[in-house]
Amino acid sequence: MSETGIDRTELPDPRYEYGGDDHIFVELDEAMSFDANFRAMAITRAISERDVDGVTEVCPANASYMVRFDPDVVEPATMMDEIRTIAENTQLEESSWESRIVDVPVLFEDPWTHETLMEFRDQHQDPDATDLEYSAAINGFDGVEEFIDAFVSEPHMVTMVGFVPGLPWCFQMVPREDQMEVPKYKQPRTDTPSRAVGFGGAFSVIYPVKGAGGYQLYGRTPIEVLDVDQTLPDFRDSMVFPNPGDVLNYRRIDRDEYDEIREEVEAGEYEYTTETVEFEPEEFFENPHEYNERLTEVIA
């Protein structure tokens, strides 16, 4: 584990694009970086706070963001100017924000995702290995154990929520040289168990519901990220738990603990282990390892 800081990324000029007559899409960078993501979050937060007339959706993404608006209320060109002005007046250096630190228990090499990944071996880069074995090998790890250790050793930040309701894309909070990267399946699977924990590109995800998917499959969490009926206590305000900016701390659990937590979830009693802290991007960039330790301590 390197004790170095995270190199700051100098972002290119943003690309402002119209999405038809009712969306504006802004690409901050083609590549993923915390700088691009934090800027997307800061700008979208500023847009939401400004309560701009005509805006109907404000969506931060990994290294970009999108705004939907009602063209009957505001002309696209006026909306574009408004967003540009807000973006130009948003300085990351002056920003800090509330983040939830969240414990996410994961049963790695679980029987359910194992069955799925074996079923789709012919659509994988390496039909003779499991997804974890393959990911460990191409990222230069000695084996699966070492790879899982690295996966859970530092937390992952939710940098975008979407695809389907509640699916978090998470970027591990480490310098670029420690980031793991894997391709997606050659052909997407037609099936993925709900609550599967996967990895693709440089992002970990939790699949909210059973369905198609293309990410490498590593394990399964007993907890929910989507609760349509809103019976679980953490879902009273929203049927979706993850929010951009959340810090997910994956924790390796065994089958007994998986079953115990699952029972609580199914009884509608499980409550997330989570604490809200003020996230200071400057401190994080300076010494991520040390900062992550401080963050995850609050839920230890």
């Binding site: 999405g19 009712d22 590549a31 290294a63 999108m66 939907r68 970027f171």
Partner: peptide, 21 residues
């Protein structure tokens, strides 16, 4: 391919999709 985008030339670092895109 830029970092985080994935290997296929059709891949970009995940973005929001406008309705109608």
């Amino acid at each position: 391919q830029p970092f985080g985008a994935g290997r296929d030339p059709s891949n970009v670092v995940d973005i929001g999709y406008p309705v109608g895109s």
